[in-house]
Design a protein around this nucleic acid. Structure first.
Lengths: 148, 148
DNA sequence: CTGCCTGCAAATATTTTGCATTAAA
DNA sequence: TTTAATGCAAAATATTTGCAGGCAG
């Protein structure tokens, strides 16, 4: 069951959309609420299926549109894992991803500033990077709850 | 123009395939030589087109098969970049990737052991990772030659 | 020989696009 | 009212699969 947005999340969405001259729509609210509900980095298709529960008429193309919009206004990040479809993640704090080989589940791993700094330091002169994507692949024992 | 494998590279291929009970075929040699020739992390389709120059009858499905085989026996790594097709890279030394937003070109960035160590150290207990993928996205000035 | 591999074609899967309609601001 | 977003269907991409015949070991 997808719950609707809290006032605070709705404001967050509205502000980000307005900032880049985009409109708040019911579809965008629904898709955004799906991303916030379960922090499991769903694929487009997973988002589509979950969102349709709350909004049966919703189309797949609209889900693609919404996700692209969210990425473009910085509400959501795309994550690619090897041989996997693109996944989406509303956690904007700097973090790495850990994909469990067994379960396929994707966990967020906190990324301390000094690690980011040491990573940036390996770039040769002339290389300037805004985005760093870090993915681990392996096994996670114990943890069976959503990370974030 | 794709040159055929050096003896040393051919041995390398042969050994890796044998080790996992796979066979050396002309197609596999061709595909492997394509990967070694230009270190630009080509997509499947790019590999296909280049390989066909040397071997016109080659089929796309075979290229997919070959690449999967190479990945499975550790000859080649897959690289995924955001919103891009999977790319392939025969550089097995630990390294990060840097994708230039302007040119689309993918550079390899050397990854010092201490940086790898600091990355592993951020994993919570119970998380065990064999593979770390690090991608930078940004702009690279100057460098216009293949990195590797 | 024997089993793995190739090539083909068809099936899936994924993502994008054009356009008429609808809805937000 | 004006501009942007949705929904649909079709197209474009990307990847996988089944299977008959071919070839490496």
């Amino acid at each position: 069951m997808i719950q609707s947005l809290t006032d605070s999340d709705r404001e967050h969405l509205q502000e980000a959309l307005n900032r880049s001259g985009q409109k708040v729509t019911a579809q965008r609210e629904t898709v955004f609420s799906v991303l916030l509900a379960e922090r499991d980095h769903p694929t487009v298709d997973e988002v589509f299926n979950r969102a349709r529960e709350a909004m049966p008429g919703l189309s797949l193309a609209t889900v693609y549109n919404c996700l692209e919009t969210f990425v473009s206004c910085g509400l959501v990040r795309q994550v690619n894992h090897e041989r996997e479809s693109t996944r989406y993640c509303p956690n904007l704090a700097p973090h790495a991803h850990f994909r469990d080989k067994e379960t396929g589940r994707v966990h967020d791993i906190e990324l301390p500033p000094e690690v980011i700094k040491s990573l940036r330091s390996i770039l040769p002169p002339g290389f300037d990077s805004e985005v760093i994507e870090i993915s681990f692949l392996g096994r996670a024992q114990g943890t069976d709850k959503n990370s974030n």
